[in-house]
Design a protein around this nucleic acid. Structure first.
Lengths: 190, 190
DNA sequence: GTCATTTCTTGTCATTTGGCAAGACGATAT
DNA sequence: ATATCGTCTTGCCAAATGACAAGAAATGAC
């Protein structure tokens, strides 16, 4: 478990002791495919490090269709920041696409670490910075890249997804219909 | 100046003294239309609170076209987080659309406040949370909303922009061509 | 194994948007 | 006043994508 912790919380200011303390604030949790980690309208009280498996988050649009907002793969932080940090009801639902193993940490425990370990708050700020960058890049890609390229990028970055996730859910993440995605795949593969 | 500071750094944990200390870390700076606050490839060493005026950020796509990534209006934090916090060259350029007045704070001064004032680091985390939410919303809008609706939203949220910014720059922010935007405006206005 | 359900593909046609180019309009400099 | 430059609009046609529907394939329940 400590290995996963070390790879997730990488920062020069974090000592071995810091990491031990951080690790002991986490609890291992396993769940089967389909389990809902956070339901729409609930307030998040924890976040997770994904040790193995695949997690998906989605929202509903005005017509009630599911729009996939994120795929979380092993090593990533599984979190709905707005709900956790503003203590507000989540618009997003978190659900396990496959059986998964996660390390869970509660909000209170996180707070303690954030204010008690300078390296941890630095890590936190860098994590946010990275997330912001990734989200901005995603917006930019929606503008500058064709649907085909967005699909190719996703395949390159998170190939696991193609294996386990229905086309429709991938399509909504890419901003197209499953029909279009089907045609795009036809163009690409041969 | 203290008023702007107070409205920008709102958090229950921040006392009057804290705000005074924060305020004194800022310096007022005025600049004329067209001034570049941060050039592509430079490392940001500060961020700003926009007191009045309008700032735009943009990147270049693979063809060298400018893509507007953000419009900053009065009261907002003008910043390129990745460059400032990772001390890395900025992909984005910050430029004044109109003459502007800003409150500037350096990276070192920010660091001191961030680690010296608990309420300030809490404020920082909430700011990041809000930014993340806004960026995610933007991605979602690019997927779920029509170009027309995206334009209407922008008009509603930041009407100042329409007045000062060329159509082409607004169009690239919305992910369409200036031609399309021109047609959309034609549909809307009458 | 069989049935039912979901997922994926494919066809047809409509809509949106882009690429390109011409012309109108407006601001500014001389 | 004229010339010039950037901005905005508009027309024409092409490309990408969506909506809808039918059928094939895969998956899961019993």
């Amino acid at each position: 478990m400590i290995d996963i912790i070390k790879s997730a919380y990488q920062h020069p200011l974090l000592s071995e002791e810091d990491l031990q303390r951080i690790a002991s604030a986490h609890r291992k949790e396993e769940m089967e495919k389909g389990h809902v980690l956070l339901g729409e309208g609930k307030v998040a009280n924890e976040y997770y490090i994904l040790e193995s498996g695949l997690i998906r988050s989605f929202v509903h649009d005005y017509d009630g269709n599911e729009i996939t907002t994120e795929f979380f793969v092993a090593g990533e932080i599984v979190i709905v920041p707005t709900s956790l940090f503003r203590r507000s009801p989540s618009q997003e639902t978190l659900v396990a696409v496959t059986g998964s193993v996660l390390l869970k940490i509660g909000f209170a425990e996180f707070q303690e670490l954030f204010h008690g370990i300078p390296g941890f708050s630095e890590w936190g700020r860098l994590w946010f910075t990275h997330q912001l960058f990734a989200m901005k890049q995603r917006s930019l890609d929606m503008i500058t890249e064709t649907a085909t390229n967005r699909y190719l990028k996703l395949m390159r970055d998170k190939p696991q997804i193609i294996q386990y996730v229905p086309l429709k859910q991938i399509a909504s993440f890419l901003g197209i219909t499953d029909t279009s995605l089907s045609r795009i795949r036809k163009e690409i593969i041969p």
